[in-house]
C-alpha cells in the first residue's frame, strides 16, 4: 500500500482540473443517480417489488429486453457484413455510405421516430406494401424492432471496422496455402479475430436499445402488455406522480444497464488478454 494516492507532477493545473472534473461529475451524474438509489432505498424493497411485480411492468420489461436482444442480434450480423464491405470491397459511393453509417447517432431520435412511423404505418410507403402482403409493421412489435435496429445500427460496424483494417493479409494467405477454402478461412480465422470487437458492439447496441425512447414511442402504438416499452412506463408513472413506481422501474433498468457495462468491460479485458488488441 506504499503507492501514493497521487504522484507529484511538475505540470500545473492539478487543482483546477481535478476540481472542475469532480465537481461537474458529482453535480451532473453522481448526485442524480445517487438520488435515484436513495429514493429506492427510502421506499424499501417491499414497495419497489410491489411496483415492479405487476403484469404490466413485467410485460414492458420483457418486451424491451426481448426486442432489444433481437435488434442487437440483427445489428451484430449486419454490422459485421457492413464493416466488411466498407473495408474490403470497392464500389461507387463507398465513402458516402461510410459517412452515412453514423446517421442514427446524429439524427435526433424524435425525428427518426416520426419518419419511421410515416414510412411503416399502413398508409406509408413500406407500410402499404406490408398491408398488401397481409401484415402490419408500425404499431406492432415488428415496428419497435425496426426502430431499435435503426438506433443501434452504427455500433457493431464502428467497433469492428478498425479491427478488419488491422487484419494481416498474410494470415489469410497462410490459411489458403494450407488448403483452407475461403469460407473455411472466414469462419475459422477471420470471424474469431472479429469476435471480441463485434461482441462489444453487440453489447453497446443492446444497452442503447433497452433505454431507447424517442424513436420507439411513435411507431410502437403503446398498447399495455403488447407494445409498451419499459422507458415509456417510467414516463407514464411520472405523469401519474407515482414516484415509487417510476423509481422501481428506473432502478430495474439501471441495474440491468450496469450489468451490461460490466459485461462490456469483461469482454474487453478478456480480448486484450487473448489477442492483444481492441
Amino acid at each position: 500500500m506504499g503507492r501514493p494516492l497521487i504522484h507529484r507532477s511538475p505540470i500545473p493545473g492539478l487543482g483546477v482540473s481535478a476540481g472542475i472534473t469532480l465537481t461537474m461529475l458529482s453535480l451532473v451524474v453522481l448526485l442524480p443517480i445517487g438520488a435515484l438509489l436513495l429514493k429506492g432505498a427510502s421506499a424499501g424493497l417491499d414497495v419497489l417489488w410491489h411496483e415492479v411485480n405487476t403484469r404490466r411492468v413485467w410485460g414492458a420489461l420483457f418486451l424491451s429486453f426481448r426486442l432489444s436482444f433481437y435488434a442487437a442480434l440483427f445489428n451484430l450480423v449486419f454490422g459485421v457484413a457492413l464493416a466488411w464491405i466498407l473495408v474490403r470491397y470497392r464500389f461507387p459511393g463507398r465513402r458516402l455510405i461510410d459517412a452515412a453509417v453514423d446517421l442514427p447517432f446524429a439524427l435526433p431520435t424524435a425525428v427518426a421516430g416520426i419518419a419511421l412511423t410515416a414510412l411503416y404505418a399502413p398508409n406509408g410507403a413500406f407500410g402499404a406494401l406490408a398491408k398488401d402482403l397481409g401484415f402490419k409493421i408500425a404499431y406492432t412489435p415488428l415496428g419497435i424492432f425496426i426502430a431499435l435496429v435503426f438506433v443501434g445500427l452504427p455500433f457493431v460496424t464502428r467497433t469492428v471496422q478498425p479491427v478488419i483494417e488491422e487484419i494481416d493479409r498474410e494470415v489469410e494467405e497462410a490459411s489458403a496455402t494450407l488448403g483452407a477454402s475461403r469460407a473455411h478461412t472466414i469462419c475459422r480465422v477471420i470471424l474469431p479475430m472479429l469476435a471480441p470487437a463485434a461482441l462489444t458492439g453487440f453489447a453497446l447496441s443492446l444497452a442503447r436499445a433497452v433505454g431507447e425512447y424517442g424513436s420507439v414511442i411513435f411507431i410502437a402504438g403503446n398498447l399495455p402488455m403488447k407494445t409498451e416499452i419499459a422507458p415509456l412506463l417510467i414516463v407514464i408513472k411520472l405523469e401519474e406522480f407515482n414516484y415509487d413506481g417510476a423509481t422501481a422501474i428506473g432502478l430495474a433498468m439501471l441495474v440491468i444497464s450496469f450489468a451490461l457495462l460490466f459485461v462490456i468491460n469483461a469482454v474487453q479485458v478478456w480480448s486484450r488478454r487473448r489477442i492483444g488488441y481492441v
Binding site: 435515484l36 433505454g211 422507458p231 417510467i234 414516463v235 411520472l238 428506473g250 444497464s257 451490461l260
Partner: peptide, 16 residues
C-alpha cells in the same frame, strides 16, 4: 456512465 443510462432514467434521476 451516462452512455449506459437510458435518457428517460436520466430525466427521472434529475426529477428525483
Amino acid at each position: 456512465l451516462p452512455f449506459s443510462v437510458s435518457p428517460v432514467v436520466a430525466g427521472l434521476c434529475i426529477v428525483l
